[in-house]
Design a protein around this nucleic acid. Structure first.
Lengths: 154, 154
DNA sequence: CCTCGACCTCAACAGCGGTTGAGGTTTAGC
DNA sequence: GCTAAACCTCAACCGCTGTTGAGGTCGAGG
C-alpha cells in the first residue's frame, strides 16, 4: 500500500481519489470535462502526475465556494498541465481569479454583516442593506409612489 | 402603472419579479419549495407582502455565493413569514448563518491568498496551502448529487 | 362589454455535477 | 499461472434549480 513498484511518481485513479477526497467517478468526470488529464498505461489505465493532486485540491475548494466547474476549467486552462507555467500565465490567472474571489468575498461579507446588522432591528430590513440595493437596477419605474410607500416600515 | 388600485401594499408576481430580478418561473419555484409564500386573490392570483422582496433579495444573494436553496429555506423557516420574528429568532438564525458565512469567507480568502501567494513560486504549490490541508476526512458520498462538503463531525 | 396582457397550472425538458451498475480488462501479489 | 482487487467504458439515472410551452383564466382600461 505504500509506493507501488510501478510507481514513477504517478498516481492511479484510486490513489488520487483517496488522497484528494474526490470520488473516482468524479475524477473521471473532471477528466471528461477537461479539468484534469492523465496518461494511460499500456493497459489503458490512468496515471496522474502528482501535480494533479493539487489541481484537484483547487477544484474542490473552488467548488465548495460555489464556483462552477466551467469557470474553474477556464482558470486551469491557463496552466500548462505539463508543468511550470510562466510567471505571466500565473499573473494573468491570478488577477482574474483574485477579482472573482474578491467579489464573492465581498458578497458574503455583505450578507453576513447585513444579517448581523439586522439583529438590531428585528426585521428583514434588507432595504437598508447593500444586499437589496446591489441588485436593484429596477429602472422601470419613475418610482414616485414607491418611495412614499417605503416609509411605512413593514 | 404606479400603485395599482387593488394595491394594499402587495405585489403581483410580475412586480416581484421585476423588482427582485428573479424570473417569474423562479418565484413560482421558490414558492413551491416553501421559501416564499403568497396569499391568493379571489381569482387565484398571487399577492406578495412587500417583505417578500427582502426574502427574495436574501435568497438571491445567498444563492450567488453557492448556498443551496434547502439551506436557505432552513434559515428562512426560522423567520415567521407572517411578520416580525422575535429577537431570539433572529439571534439564533444570525448565529447559524454567521458561522456558515464565516467559513465560506474564510475558504475564499484562503483560496485567493494562496493563489496570490503562488505567483511567487510559479507552480501549483497548494500542498503548502491550507487549501489542500483543509479538505481532510470525508469519505462522504451517499445518495444524491453533490451536497455541501461539510467537515462537521460534531 | 371586450380585449389584451398578465396571470394560472401542469408537464416536459435543460444543464450541472456527478453516481450507479453492467459487463469486461488489467495488474499486483501469491 | 491464477486470482481478486482495481481498473476500464458506456449508458442510465439522480437531485437541484430552474425554463419553456400548452392550454386556460383574470382583470384593468378603453
Amino acid at each position: 500500500m505504500g509506493t507501488p513498484s510501478w510507481d514513477k511518481g504517478e498516481l492511479t485513479v484510486g490513489e488520487l481519489s483517496a488522497r484528494s477526497g474526490a470520488a473516482v467517478s468524479a475524477l473521471h468526470f473532471y477528466e471528461r470535462k477537461g479539468l484534469i488529464s492523465s496518461r494511460r498505461t499500456s493497459g489503458n489505465q490512468r496515471r496522474y502526475p502528482r501535480v494533479t493532486l493539487r489541481r484537484v485540491a483547487l477544484i474542490r475548494v473552488a467548488q465548495r465556494v460555489g464556483i462552477p466547474l466551467a469557470q474553474i476549467k477556464e482558470a486551469l486552462d491557463n496552466l500548462p498541465d505539463g508543468r511550470t507555467p510562466t510567471k505571466k500565465d500565473w499573473e494573468k490567472l491570478s488577477r482574474a481569479w483574485r477579482q472573482e474571489l474578491d467579489e464573492r468575498i465581498h458578497a458574503l461579507q455583505q450578507l453576513r454583516d447585513d444579517f448581523t446588522d439586522c439583529i438590531g432591528c428585528g426585521c428583514l430590513s434588507l432595504n437598508r442593506c447593500s444586499l437589496a440595493n446591489a441588485r436593484d437596477e429596477l429602472g422601470s419605474h419613475g418610482a414616485g409612489a414607491r418611495r412614499l410607500v417605503e416609509a411605512e416600515a413593514s
